[in-house]
């Protein structure tokens, strides 16, 4: 029971830290490159604790992101949900991949996420589709090994 609780504390902390990072303004030239950190952390938990975290978890988290980022409520929720569903179908294979292959798959998932949220944005507000929406997928490749490494280490220690 106590390990379970420890793991939950770790999950909550990791998500809070991810939220803090996602708020960071940073230099505006790099804004397009900002990886969706909350999504990546959520994906980690979905992939490595699939019996605890599922679609409802992804949906709730997406809704939270919508509320704090000022996006239309439901936008990220839907994007998180679809991405999580896809990740779940890949889960069994992903865990056996090398970190490099994992990165490529994660990039693919981030592209799905970006496409859904931008599509909803376009449907609601209109505007221009830009190639820039693919940048976060590239930066996610760089960030994923770090996230998977740190969370993996903490996760194993907590078990």
């Amino acid at each position: 029971m106590s390990t379970r609780r420890l793991s939950l504390v770790l999950v909550l902390t990791s998500l809070l830290v991810a939220l803090v990072f996602s708020f960071g303004a940073g230099r505006s030239e790099w804004l397009y490159w900002k990886p969706p950190i909350v999504l990546l952390v959520a994906l980690y938990w979905l992939l490595f604790e699939p019996q605890t975290f599922g679609l409802v978890f992804a949906f709730t988290l997406g809704l939270l992101v919508d509320f704090v980022s000022g996006a239309p409520a439901g936008e990220s929720a839907m994007a998180f949900c679809v991405t999580a569903y896809w990740a779940q179908t890949l889960e069994h294979r992903l865990l056996h991949f090398t970190i490099f292959h994992q990165c490529l798959l994660i990039a693919g998932l981030v592209v799905v996420y970006q496409l859904i949220s931008v599509a909803i944005d376009l449907a609601i507000h209109g505007g221009a589709l830009q190639l820039a929406l693919l940048y976060p997928a590239l930066s996610a490749i760089l960030v994923w090994p770090f996230i998977a490494g740190v969370l993996g280490r903490l996760h194993r220690r907590s078990l």
């Binding site: 679609l55 409802v56 949906f59 997406g62 809704l63 239309p72 409520a73 439901g74 936008e75 929720a77 839907m78 949900c81 679809v82 569903y85 909803i120 609601i124």
Partner: peptide, 16 residues
């Protein structure tokens, strides 16, 4: 999954 998607759509509609 479908229930959640429907919920998301409903939320988008309500928020809009």
């Amino acid at each position: 999954m479908l229930v959640l998607l429907a919920l998301a759509l409903a939320l988008l509609f309500v928020d809009r």
